[in-house]
Design a protein around this nucleic acid. Structure first.
Lengths: 171, 171
DNA sequence: GGCTGATAGTTCACCAGCGAACTATCCGCC
DNA sequence: GGCGGATAGTTCGCTGGTGAACTATCAGCC
């Protein structure tokens, strides 16, 4: 139980109080950032909790899923880093674990011998097919507070924001 | 530069491919979760980058801001933990740092001697007032892709989702 | 053909966050 | 008044993520 309500209330109150004190504070935008981070963290915690019984965390899971969902079941560390917004260091560690568990394999690329090719194994695919379906019901109820159009609106706004942040990046 | 566009595209593509493969996958909801986490991580990175010149990270900053924005400039570790969704262990470490930098003080509560009272110092207040304003312009541009009504809608949906997640928590 | 700069991964040392165990205090009830 | 269970913080050891340094390879250019 994480009592987000208290956090949300305190957030609004706190921002109000700071705004009284510091002129020019963009209240609405600050609220949006903090609300988004707050819900994001809550979702993240839930996902991690769901994965814990399988002795997995979200990074491992995402990495595995990227391979599962790739066209030919394989990719390179560099590509996975780019798509998962991860650093190579961490990807090395994650793939080490997945290799050790037999869910993926590591091999050398022929055309560019610097590259490593990661490929999901049959075991890895079985693991995903076993692990995913039980998560569906809870995922659905997470958003059961939204109407169909609200879901669409939320998705549209999130996507718009993501693409905007991409261009307006901090150099 | 973090190339979120590639992530978003790959996300949609990947979910499509997995959905073809595993029946019953709630595509829309999975997309929402992943989009939200993606944008959340991007925002988080930006905030951290903004704070780095001041030798601060977001946890430290949030903790300091909670004290700054509290009615009397003080609180207890327990309360801060609840509002920041942090564990006590970590709060001890964070407050240790802030105390060492002279931004807050630690003292004992009189009515309940188990409690520790954290109070923001004059230096701490000065620090916040110096640090905040330069962040405003960038915060505003982050959401400059949204119209006024879109901002309101987004805020409403985020808040609704946060409060819903609160009740529909994983036991 | 071999030098130069860029790129793909890995290793290493460090920081941030967490669960479990511990201490000190409080509260309620005999 | 003192015993038992709950609560507030801290300490400790471990996991997850990162920057910096390093190795191996590639690609272009003389």
């Amino acid at each position: 139980m994480s009592n987000l309500k208290a956090c949300v209330d305190a957030l609004y109150e706190g921002v109000d109080r700071v705004a009284d004190n510091i002129p020019g504070l963009p209240k609405c935008e600050v609220l949006l950032i903090r609300l988004l981070l707050l819900t994001g963290e809550a979702l993240q915690r839930d996902v991690e909790n769901k994965l814990k019984p399988f002795d997995m965390n979200d990074s491992d899971f995402r990495t595995l899923m990227m391979l599962y969902s790739s066209a030919d079941g394989s990719s390179t560390p560099g590509e996975l880093c780019a798509l998962a917004e991860q650093k190579p260091t961490n990807m090395t560690r994650i793939t080490n674990l997945l290799v050790k568990r037999g869910l993926i394999t590591r091999s050398n690329a022929t055309h560019d011998r610097r590259q490593v090719v990661l490929t999901i194994t049959a075991d890895g695919r079985r693991f995903v097919r076993k692990l995913l379906p039980p998560m569906f019901p809870e995922v659905v109820t997470k958003f059961s507070c939204f109407s169909q159009t609200e879901r669409q609106t939320f998705e549209r706004l999130l996507k718009k924001l993501a693409l905007h942040l991409d261009t307006a990046d901090t150099p």
